[in-house]
Simulated scan of single mutants.
Amino acid sequence: MRSLASIVLGFESLVLALVTPVMISVADVRPAVAVPVCIGLAVLALLATGLLRNRVGYALGWVVQAGAVGLGFVVPVMFVLGLAFASFWVAAIVLGRRIEEAKKAQQAHTG
């Protein structure tokens, strides 16, 4: 589960960083606001990636998903991107748990 979740958060951090110039040039958001918000979310995504060994990492991951979707109120295309990444996040968690359960069942069966 952790590897899938870290992939999602890693790519999402890149997208969040790239949203900064979009917010400044397209949405006319002041750089003093856009930079801390977007780069802050990107750094939070990377921090969450590093903390995925604990529940804290997953909680921060959910915060990042909410923040990414929330950026849609400023840059409407972020509703689409934020929801896409939130969907990938949910899929990573669900599929990751299934993979872990299958591995445990396989180990119990063979060992």
Rank of each mutant, 00 (worst) to 15 (best):
P21S: 12
P21G: 14
V22D: 09
V22T: 12
V22N: 03
M23L: 15
I24M: 13
I24C: 10
S25M: 12
V26L: 11
V26G: 08
V26D: 13
V26R: 02
A27P: 04
A27Q: 06
A27N: 05
A27Y: 07
D28V: 11
D28I: 08
D28G: 11
D28F: 10
R30T: 15
R30E: 15
A32E: 13
V33S: 12
V33N: 08
V33K: 05
A34S: 15
A34H: 07
A34Q: 07
A34C: 14
V35P: 11
V35G: 11
V35E: 10
P36Q: 12
P36Y: 03
P36A: 09
V37K: 13
V37L: 15
V37H: 12
C38S: 15
C38P: 10
I39M: 11
I39Y: 08
I39F: 11
G40A: 15
G40N: 14
L41V: 14
L41H: 08
L41T: 14
A42Q: 10
A42V: 12
V43A: 15
L44R: 01
L44F: 03
L44C: 06
L44V: 14
A45V: 13
L46T: 07
L47Q: 02
L47R: 05
L47I: 13
L47S: 05
L47V: 15
A48Y: 00
A48N: 04
A48P: 02
T49Q: 11
G50W: 00
G50E: 01
L51H: 05
L51C: 06
L51S: 02
L52G: 02
L52W: 01
L52M: 12
R53D: 03
R53Y: 04
R53Q: 04
R53V: 03
N54L: 04
R55A: 14
V56Y: 10
V56L: 13
G57T: 01
G57N: 05
G57H: 04
Y58Q: 04
Y58T: 02
Y58N: 01
Y58P: 00
Y58L: 10
Y58I: 00
A59H: 10
A59P: 05
A59T: 11
L60N: 02
L60Q: 00
L60I: 04
L60F: 06
L60G: 00
L60T: 02
G61C: 10
W62F: 07
W62R: 02
V63P: 03
V63A: 11
V64Q: 06
Q65M: 14
Q65T: 09
Q65Y: 06
Q65P: 08
Q65K: 09
G67E: 03
G67Q: 03
V69D: 13
V69T: 14
V69H: 06
V69S: 12
G70I: 03
G70F: 03
L71G: 00
L71T: 03
L71Q: 04
L71K: 03
F73L: 14
F73T: 15
F73H: 05
V74D: 01
V74S: 04
V74W: 07
V74I: 07
V75N: 05
V75E: 14
P76N: 06
P76D: 08
V77K: 05
V77M: 09
